[in-house]
Design a protein around this nucleic acid. Structure first.
Lengths: 341, 341
DNA sequence: TGTTAGCACTCCACTTCACTGAGTGCTAAC
DNA sequence: GTTAGCACTCAGTGAAGTGGAGTGCTAACA
C-alpha cells in the first residue's frame, strides 16, 4: 500500500488534471496545493507513483496524468465527499414536481437533466415493460387485415403496435380476446402472463387454433426488441470536453451511442449494487477505453428495474457525478414506486 | 444573361467544387473538363464571373468557389439531370415493403434512409395529427385523479397523454364521454371537431359543466405542441463533410437541430410547391448561412400534409439529392394516401 | 477582336530552425 | 530523508525560407 504522502500527491494530481485537462507538473503541484514539500520531493514521489502504475507520462518532459489504476484508487479511497448543493437539489426537485404528459417523459427528462448537470452523456434505461403489471389492452382496427394493439401497464406506460391478423380471424375475435385477457390478466406482470393464466383464457375462449396464433403475435409484439427503452441525453455536451475536440472521435462515439443494443449491453454488463464506476481501460468495449461510465440501479421490492448511467471522459468529476446520480436515482426510484410499476 | 461559355465554366467550377471541396483553378478546369479553351481564357472568364457575383475568391491566388448566387443559377438552369439509379430505387422500394410496427416508424425510417443516401441531415415533418380523421379514443385509469387518454386516428397514429381529472368527476364520466365521442366524431378530422359536432355531443351528455372542462382538456392535450412531429436523421453523417471538421460548428448545428420548434419554423418558411431549394445566404436564419436546405412537400387531396427536407453544406449534390427527395416524397405520399390519413 | 502564351506576382502550406518554458531525472549537499 | 542545482528533454511558437497553385496583365497571334 502506498503511504499517505503519496496518496495526497496522487489526489492532488488527479484533482488538478480533472480541473485543467493538462498534464500536471511538480512545480504546479507545489505551488497550488499545500503539500509541505518541495517540487523535487514531489518529483521523486511522482516517479514512484509512475513505477507503481498510478500515473503516466506522455513524454519525458511533460507532467503526469493519471492512469486508469490511478483513477481507480482515487475513486475507491481518495474521493473527497462532494455532496450536492441545495441549489442543485432544488433544480432537480423542482423538475420532479412538474407534471408530465406521458410516462416516458419522466425518463427522457431525467436523462436531459443529468446530462445538463454533469456536462456528459447520460443514459437512462427504463424498466422493462414486461416487468410491469398488465393493466389492460385494446385492439383498434386499422384496415382489413391489420389491427393496432394498444397495451397499458399499471404504471401508465402505453405501447402500441401494428399486428397482421391471421387468416380467417375477424376483428371481433380480437375484441373478444381483449375482453377475456383484460378480465384474467389484470395485475399480473407481463413476463409471467405466458406461464400463468394462459390456460384459463384458453378454456374460456375455446377456439384455440385462432387463439394461439393470435396470442403468439401479441406476446411477441409486446415483449420483443423494445422491451427496455434507452433514453439518451447530452450528446452535444460531450463536445465541450477538450478530449472530444476531434470530430472523428465525436463521430465514433455518437455512432456508438446510436446503437441501442450495444449501449444496453454495455450498461448491463456494468451493473452492480448501488453505484458502479468503470474506468477507462477497465471497460471491455474498445470504443470507450478512454471513457468512464458510472451506473446506478433502481429497484422495486428488491428486483432490479432499470438504471441510470453517465458516460464521459476518464477525466470526470467522479465525486459530483456520483452524488448526482445517486440523488437522481432516489428520485426515479420514488417515481417508479409511486407509479407502482 | 451570361453567355454559354461562361455557363459551361460556371457549371464546371461548381461540379468540381462539389466533388472536391477545394477551390477550383483555371488550369485544373482546363485539364479535367473539355472546355476547348486555354487556362488563360478560362481565367478571363472566371474573372468576369466573379465580377458578376457568381464566383468568389478567398484570397488573390487561390481558385474560385461558387457564391450563393452561383449555386442559385446552377440549380435553376445548369443542373444536369441526375435520375436515380435502379439500384438506389431498389433499396428504397425494398424498405417501403417491409412491415412497420408502429406508424411513426414510417417517418423515422424515411428520415434515416434519406440521410444515409445523401450523407446529410434529413428532416421529416409528419402530418399534423389534427388533420387526421378521428378513429376512436379511450381512457385508461392511471390513479385516483389521473387518466390516460389514448387516441387513434384512421391512419393508425396512436397518441397518449396523461390528464388530470377535474374535481368531482369520476372515471365513469370519462368513459361515458369516450363512448359518445366515439359515436359522434368518428371520421371527422380532429381540427374540425371543435366547431362541428360538439353541439351534438353536448346535447347527448347533458352534464355540460363537467363535460366542457373535460373536453377542453382533451382537445388541448391532443392538438397542442406536438401536433406535427419532426423526425431527424443523419446527424452523424454531417461530420463526414469537410466543412464540418470543426467541433464547434458541429456543436452549433446539432444544438440547432435539437430545437424542434426552430427547425419546424425553418422548414415551414421554405415550403413551396414541389421541390424548393434554399441556398446559403438566402436562408434567413443566421445559423445556416453556409448551408442549403432542400424541401419537398406531400399532399392529400390538394392539402399540404407534411414535408421532407435535407440540410447540408451549400456544397451539396443538388441534382442527386433533389431526385432522391422527390422519389421519397412520392413514396411517402402513397403511404399516407394508403393509410387514408 | 477574341484567344493564348508568357511572366511577374501573390499567398497558402509546408518545412526548417532557433528559442522558450515547463517539466524531468540525477547528483550532491544539507 | 529532503532539497537545491543542473543538465537534459520535448512540445509549442514564431520567423524565415521554399514550392506550388493560382491570378492578373500584357503582348503577340489568328
Amino acid at each position: 500500500m502506498i503511504d499517505e504522502r503519496k496518496q495526497h500527491i496522487l489526489q492532488a494530481v488527479i484533482q488538478d488534471y480533472i480541473a485543467s485537462a493538462e498534464p500536471v507538473g511538480s512545480r504546479t503541484l507545489a505551488r497550488k496545493y499545500d503539500l509541505g514539500v518541495s517540487p523535487a520531493t514531489i518529483r521523486n514521489e511522482m516517479a514512484d507513483l509512475e513505477m507503481l502504475g498510478y500515473l503516466e507520462h506522455i513524454h519525458t518532459s511533460s507532467g503526469r496524468i493519471p492512469s486508469s489504476k490511478g483513477y481507480r484508487l482515487y475513486v475507491d479511497s481518495l474521493l473527497p465527499v462532494q455532496p450536492m448543493t441545495d441549489q442543485e437539489k432544488a433544480v432537480i426537485d423542482k423538475w420532479y414536481k412538474t407534471k408530465v404528459q406521458r410516462i416516458d417523459q419522466v425518463f427522457q427528462e431525467t436523462a436531459k437533466l443529468i446530462s445538463k448537470m454533469t456536462k456528459n452523456v447520460s443514459l437512462v434505461l427504463a424498466p422493462q415493460i414486461s416487468k410491469a403489471a398488465f393493466r389492460c389492452m385494446q385492439f383498434l382496427p386499422l384496415d382489413d387485415h391489420r389491427v393496432i394493439a394498444v397495451l397499458m401497464t399499471d404504471a401508465g406506460f402505453v405501447e402500441n403496435r401494428i399486428m397482421e391478423m391471421p387468416d380467417g380471424s375477424t376483428f371481433e375475435d380480437f375484441q373478444r380476446m381483449a375482453k377475456v385477457a383484460n378480465g384474467h390478466l389484470a395485475g399480473h406482470t407481463l413476463e409471467k402472463i405466458h406461464t400463468k393464466s394462459l390456460k384459463q383464457i384458453e378454456a374460456v375462449i375455446g377456439d384455440s387454433g385462432l387463439y394461439n396464433s393470435a396470442l403468439d403475435l401479441i406476446s411477441n409484439a409486446l415483449t420483443s426488441d423494445r422491451k427496455e427503452r434507452l433514453y439518451l441525453g447530452g450528446t452535444t455536451e460531450l463536445m465541450a470536453q477538450p478530449e472530444f475536440h476531434d470530430v472523428n472521435k465525436v463521430k465514433e462515439i455518437l455512432l456508438m451511442l446510436e446503437e441501442d443494443q450495444l449501449m444496453k449491453d454495455i450498461i448491463r454488463s456494468h451493473l452492480g449494487d448501488g453505484l458502479t464506476v468503470s474506468i477507462g481501460q477497465e471497460n471491455e468495449y474498445s470504443g470507450i477505453k478512454d471513457c468512464s461510465i458510472i451506473t446506478a440501479t433502481y429497484h422495486l421490492d428488491g428486483e432490479l428495474l432499470g438504471s441510470l448511467a453517465v458516460l464521459g471522459p476518464t477525466r470526470m468529476e467522479y465525486g459530483r457525478t456520483m452524488s448526482l446520480l445517486n440523488y437522481m436515482n432516489q428520485n426515479l426510484n420514488e417515481v417508479v414506486k409511486r407509479l407502482n410499476w
